[in-house]
Design a protein around this nucleic acid. Sequence first.
DNA 1: GTTGAGCGTT
Length: 152
Amino acid sequence: MAFASAFRRILRGSSTPSPIFRSQFAWIRHNSTLPTLTSPKLFISGLSRNTTDESLYNAFAPFGRLLDAKVIIDRGSGRPKGFGFITYGTVEEAEKAREEMNAKFLDDWVIFVDPARPREPLPRQPPQQDPQLNPKPTESGFTTNRTIGWSG
DNA sequence: GTTGAGCGTT
């Protein structure tokens, strides 16, 4: 927006987006609502292009046992997309890390720590199940018997 | 060598 670029010039005067400005948003999010974490997986956004898997790991290592720390690299350009994912052993560690690292600096950039969305649907716990939205898809002439469970 | 919202290369 125009706000961001304006604050950018005011606070820094350089082409680097001001971390101070970004931290305001983070504080607002921090003070408004804290969504409870349900998984030890965290989505880290606002990363610097200099941040790599190792530096991301080192930044979040003190808050718990990190099982994974990954900075997403754009396969086309081969450069970091500016966000990544970390996985702790427990949700408590993830919550602590979120409390400690959200709206904090990493490589001169204010990072955002949010719960990561599930990438793969769990096989035993479907996230959404709306049988009412599919009353009867029997238009193809087939009488689709509802198969309970995937008997592979 | 480019500009910063977002949910991942298997």
